Simulated assay, not measured.
Amino acid sequence: MKLKKIISLALTVVMSSTLLVGCGKSKKSAQVLNIYNVGDYIDEDLITKFEEETGIDVVYETYDTNEAMYQKLKSGSTKYDLIFPSDYMVEKLISEDLVSPIDYSKIPNYKYIMKDFRNPAYDPGNKYSVPYMWGTFGILYNKTMVDEKDVDSWDVLWNKKYAGNIQMLDSVRDTMGISLIRLGYSINTQKTSEIEEAKNELIKQLPLVQAYVNDDGKDRLVVGDAAMGIVYNGDALVLMDENPDLAYSVPKEGTNRWVDAMCIPKIAENKDYAQMFINFMLDPDNALQNVEYIEYSTPNQAAFDMLDDETKNNPTAYPDQEVLDKSDVFLNLPPKVLKIYEDAWTEIKSQ
């Protein structure tokens, strides 16, 4: 199943790219829904099901990072109808008036969203966003290549004996966040001195790092070309299915507890279709099918209730409260502070 999934996702990226290059922008039609989502992040059979049930054609395109999505959305070059930003990016999009309020009269299946995911700090009242998935990030490591019995600290990523075998995320907030957590600081710090210290630690780590990666690093972890890497928990579950030598750990210092959401851009041309799709994805059967396929953690109570006990009790998918209590949520930071992070990131990547 997982091999089929990987092949299917690769074909989708190729087909989506071909379509978009051919027309220069997303298809414009009263019967088209233009979706922009993170790679490897939906069961595409559900897209087909939605098309068959509604007669609406879906144009589906993928991106690697929130920042890449933001830049394309900000440029206005392509008018997407539905996007899937993370919590802090939702807050940023709201502050810049780039997303539209949700009409919940058209999304009755919102009733299935767990109470813990309603009224979040990044979008009070869920006025602009509907929770899609949630989770953590941590260290995925190969037990045959890592000596430590318990990989329980971010410090292992700075261990010289794993030089050339460590992958880091090519994401400024995530990777700077790891360095900040390791130093005992908040992932949302606005203190220049703490950001500077986190940057310097990542520069020290560079000789040990095999590569900064996103989706492109997953295959290397599966085949054993890297001893460890930073992955989101849902990806960890998929990759551990592929290779039983892999294990996932949330370090004791803490991590990021993230929420990804569905939002409708301000410039969307087919907002009603976007809301139809959101409601479709919140249907318990569809939500269950989706979470079983991509293996991330669902905020949909009805879908969660239908999961098997092994999945419900899997700490990688649904960590216990002790882990969650030590987790932090990324917040949107003031532009002047983000500039400090971005300058630090540029310096790291230019070494």
Rank of each mutant, 00 (worst) to 15 (best):
Y232N: 13
N233Q: 08
V238K: 10
M240N: 08
D241E: 15
N243L: 03
N243E: 08
N243M: 05
P244C: 00
L246R: 04
A247E: 07
S249R: 02
S249K: 04
V250M: 06
V250C: 02
V250R: 03
P251L: 02
K252N: 06
K252F: 03
E253F: 06
E253Q: 11
G254S: 10
G254P: 00
T255W: 11
N256V: 14
N256L: 14
D260C: 08
A261C: 11
I264L: 07
K266H: 03
K266F: 00
I267P: 00
I267L: 12
I267H: 11
E269W: 12
E269K: 12
K271Q: 14
K271F: 11
D272Y: 14
Y273Q: 15
A274D: 05
M276E: 14
M276S: 14
N279E: 04
P284R: 09
P284A: 05
D285G: 08
N286I: 15
A287K: 06
L288P: 00
L288E: 02
Q289V: 10
N290K: 11
E292W: 01
Y293I: 00
E295S: 14
T298E: 14
P299W: 07
P299L: 03
N300R: 04
N300D: 14
N300H: 09
N300Y: 01
Q301C: 00
A302K: 15
A303L: 04
A303N: 03
F304C: 09
D305Y: 15
D305H: 10
